[in-house]
Design a protein around this nucleic acid. Sequence first.
DNA 1: CCGCATCCGAAAGGATACTG
DNA 2: CAGTATCCTTTCGGATGCGG
Lengths: 124, 124
Amino acid sequence: MAIAWEGNAYDPECPTRVVLDRIGDKWTVLIIEVLDAGPRRFNEIRLAIGGITPKVLTSTLRSLAADGLIVREAFGEVPPRVEYRLTDLGRSLLEPVAALRQWAERNVAEIEGNRNSAEAVATR
Amino acid sequence: MAIAWEGNAYDPECPTRVVLDRIGDKWTVLIIEVLDAGPRRFNEIRLAIGGITPKVLTSTLRSLAADGLIVREAFGEVPPRVEYRLTDLGRSLLEPVAALRQWAERNVAEIEGNRNSAEAVATR
DNA sequence: CCGCATCCGAAAGGATACTG
DNA sequence: CAGTATCCTTTCGGATGCGG
């Protein structure tokens, strides 16, 4: 059980924390957005994203499946064929992500500008 | 300049990526939520959160200030007094975060359940 | 084709002690 | 009070090569 703090404390079981850990990694959001267009095979996902190694793609897909955000379906064929598709849960996650994206697109320029100014000050 | 991919690719400069990197760390969301209640001093933030070390709090506050999400105000007093407060930009970030929190609170039970089932299968 | 095994480097975060 | 300075552990992700 999580420790009961009085106020606002770090808690790895806090729902918001769990979700941030889930979508805060490098590839999760990209993957579910690829799968939003429909079921995709392993190498289709890999090529659609670009830059992800098979190992990392495998582990990310496994954890997404473990969380019930996607399902993995392996067809008993030779050569193997494996498809991944979003669950309803996974698809519903795209809504708050879209809200985040909207905020990001509206405000990232200001953040980047601030960052550059701060860097200029730091190196002055 | 960011590389121009055809479709959906990893891009460290993608606005959504920038924001996920910003709020995906361990302490940022907790800090801005503490500051949403009003300006706070360094140790007030530290004690309100609990478990964060001075070093990590310092570096997180610095980067938040560099991004323009908070402002740092040092009063020339002895002993020192330093206050941190949200900017409008920082406060506006709480809106998409709230959307994420709502989704999290509604769905984290299902995710945790799926995780436990998956683990049970893995260790069976 | 779809992975797994192994090794590795970088970076985030933490423990502890100290300072202006 | 508000940080710094070191040192350290853990974790994420990447590179490469092999296997069913």
